[in-house]
Design a protein around this nucleic acid. Structure first.
Lengths: 234, 186
DNA sequence: AAATTACTTTTAAAAGC
DNA sequence: GCTTTAAAAAGTAATTT
């Protein structure tokens, strides 16, 4: 009976640790991404819900970057595994996916690429975990709107409000004509910003825009051509 | 006015069977020209037939998976070739092993461009996965028939997960009906 | 800058880690 | 969950010419 009691304490300890770790990870990544505190709280709420519904199962720790934190993560993972609490799923993967979901829910999305840059988990697992918790928690998030990337990308490029509203207009018009289906929201936004910068005489090169949006120049070129045509230019 | 169901083409059929006899894959790999066997990577031996074109995974238990065939007839033909090859190697093979179709992958064309954003919301976000940042297709899980449909902006679609030839046809009729009901088909 | 190759998604079975 | 097989869809990306 005493052993059972001790086990319970240990279990509770590990759970607390995991939660603390998950929350500190969310905070660390959110800081690195420049995400406002209000959104960090949403990410925390999503993580807690995932925990409550026992969704942290069946995923393995795969992300490796800093050796020390990875080691700490493994210790926690092993403990949780021994206590039959986590059974597989990675805290980091769920933390990162929760942050990605929170940003989307709050209308200030980060691309999976951007989130992966500050996470210790590979992009592929983040996407997979996101789809999993999104489905299980019934988040029902609408597809990412390319327009939501405009303010952040444009400001990183030091472009004016005028360029931003022009880019937004280009996105609206070309999406209206059915050009958005199946296209990457970041690539679509990047092309519109590039086009708007030309139209407003605040030209940025395709490379500059591509770097900020983390897409290739080829993608910008392809989307740009379609959008210009949709706008009736060319 | 062409019927989308008429555009259905079977692209791949996956089936399983067994010869009811344990196999020494090491020896089989030696005797079967063109066989690929890397037990460190995967427990099955890979053998490809040219006509009809298909790939078979042969396991130690004697169970076989056939994939890549373009029709159910081709699956039977390809497996028939493999059965004969094994018999030629003095390996006893049941008279006509039962062949079970496990999955049929088909493609089709709805004939109109699709607004995937509107479709994701219209079909119901709970049954839909549409993440254009990761994949350009919208993934729709249909209940009846129980298949998964990938829908693309071009109107081209992929139907997979079905076990009967009729599943694809029923699925196309059903998805066309649903999309039309939403007023989202051309 | 165009062409090629390759990877993303879904599905199913097999034996074993 | 992973490993392997094949196939389509269309977008994106990395190489090669």
């Amino acid at each position: 009976r005493l052993r059972k009691w001790q086990e319970r304490i240990r279990t509770k300890d590990a759970g607390e640790r995991n939660l603390q770790f998950a929350l500190s990870e969310i905070d660390r990544m959110a800081s690195a991404l420049g995400v406002p505190r209000s959104v960090r709280e949403v990410a925390s709420v999503i993580y807690r819900r995932a925990l409550n519904e026992d969704l942290i199962r069946g995923r393995s720790i795969e992300g490796v970057s800093t050796a020390a934190l990875y080691a700490a993560c493994r210790v926690i993972y092993r403990r949780a595994l021994n206590e039959d609490l986590i059974r597989g799923r990675s805290i980091e993967g769920v933390s990162t996916a929760a942050l990605y979901a929170a940003c989307r829910q709050e209308g200030i999305p980060r691309s999976l690429d951007e989130v992966a840059d500050v996470s210790r988990v590979p992009q592929k697992e983040i996407g997979r975990t996101y789809r999993y918790i999104s489905q299980e928690l019934g988040l029902e998030l609408k597809p990412v709107d390319p327009k939501q990337f405009v303010p952040r990308f444009a400001s990183a490029l030091q472009l004016s409000e005028e360029v931003q509203s022009k880019a937004t207009e280009i996105i609206d018009v070309s999406a209206e004509q059915g050009l958005l289906s199946g296209k990457s929201p970041t690539g679509f936004a990047a092309a519109a910003i590039y086009a708007a910068s030309l139209l407003c005489n605040e030209k940025k090169t395709q490379r500059e825009v591509a770097d900020v949006a983390q897409v290739t120049e080829v993608t910008i070129r392809n989307r740009y051509q379609e959008q210009i045509e949709a706008m009736g230019f060319r | 006015m062409t019927n989308p169901a008429d555009s259905i083409e079977i692209q791949n059929v996956v089936a399983s069977t067994g010869i009811g006899q344990e196999l020494d894959l090491e020896a089989l790999a030696e005797d079967l020209p063109g066989a690929d066997f890397n037990p460190d990577n995967f427990p099955g031996l890979v053998y490809r037939t040219q006509e009809p074109k298909a790939a078979a995974l042969i396991f130690r238990s004697g169970k076989i998976v056939c994939t890549g065939a373009k029709s159910i007839d081709d699956v039977h033909e390809a497996l028939g070739i493999i059965f004969e090859k094994l018999r030629g190697l003095q390996i006893p093979v049941e008279d006509d092993p039962e062949i079970t179709v496990q999955n049929i992958v088909s493609s089709a064309d709805l004939g109109h461009n699709l607004n995937l954003n509107a479709l994701a919301i219209g079909l119901g976000l709970e049954d839909v996965e549409y993440e254009p940042e990761q994949f350009p297709g919208l993934v729709y899980r249909m209940d009846e028939p129980e298949v998964v449909i990938l829908l693309f902006g071009s109107g081209k679609i992929v139907i997979t997960g079905g076990k009967r030839t009729d599943d694809a046809e029923e699925a196309v009729e059903e998805i066309v009906e649903r999309i039309e009901g939403l007023g989202l088909l051309g």
